[in-house]
Design a protein around this nucleic acid. Structure first.
Lengths: 128, 128
DNA sequence: TTGATATATTCCTGATATGGAATATACTCC
DNA sequence: GGAGTATATTCCATATCAGGAATATATCAA
């Protein structure tokens, strides 16, 4: 990817299920050595270290030296960009009233009636 | 990753900046033909169609035939898994007290339900 | 120092994604 | 039917990633 080696995209970082799993594990602890994560994840240590490297460059975890170990801790604030982005669309599914209100903002600009709307957040199965 | 050709991971779908852009464009409109997106994105039409295909298989957009055009609409509800996952960690950056409270909730919820969707944090070590 | 432990890094390989170009499909209009 | 428009699909080339294996680095212990 065309990313700076030092700054990875948070969205890409959390696209990996294993990395989300690591985040979930770190959320419950304060500072966890790599080996504990290796045991929990049942993944070879190099793979875990690589994932931790991605998370660190994405700003999602912090490292702390403790003797020969490296203690990783979650930096949940790094998830804020994703949260902010998602929240923009939360109103589109959160409820009928909210959705109507959201639509009203757009419709207000047009001030026209008789618009046939059908974008309900229910899943329409696109059969080929 | 080895994904079903018909069911793509939402996290992977939104990892692409262009696709997030498409989502942003669709959020403001009701049903948009591909060509409108092509104009807005300044991306060749085949690329746009491919991204739309990914979004559709991930359940984030729906298609609707309109003559020779295909009208795409945002299905924001497809973002809910991401929202739910993120919300789990929202409290970790919102405040210290909230964080303690969050841990209690999480532990309680895990004792109650064994229901685990793929994006949820997996087993947290109870010893801590 | 020697050996063991903890973690990171490098190299390799297979899988996959992206954009580009060309082509295929489907629909509309004449 | 044939031309033109709208969209999808295929093929190609490049890039990247995930995991495996081996190795490198750093620290601790005796």
């Amino acid at each position: 990817m065309s990313h700076d080696a030092l700054t990875l995209d948070v969205f890409e970082a959390i696209a990996e299920p294993r990395r989300r799993e690591i985040i979930g594990l770190l959320a419950g602890r304060q500072a966890t050595p790599v080996n504990d994560l290796v045991d929990s994840l049942r993944l070879p240590q190099p793979a875990v270290s690589k994932h931790l490297g991605v998370l660190r460059r994405a700003g999602l975890v912090t490292v702390q030296k403790d003797g020969q170990r490296r203690l990783y801790a979650l930096n949940a604030a790094g998830l804020k960009p994703v949260h902010d982005w998602i929240r923009t669309y939360e109103r589109y599914w959160s409820g009928q009233l909210d959705r109507i209100k959201a639509r009203a903002e757009r419709v207000a600009a047009q001030k026209r009636a008789g618009e046939s709307d059908e974008s309900a957040p229910h899943k329409t199965d696109p059969a080929e």
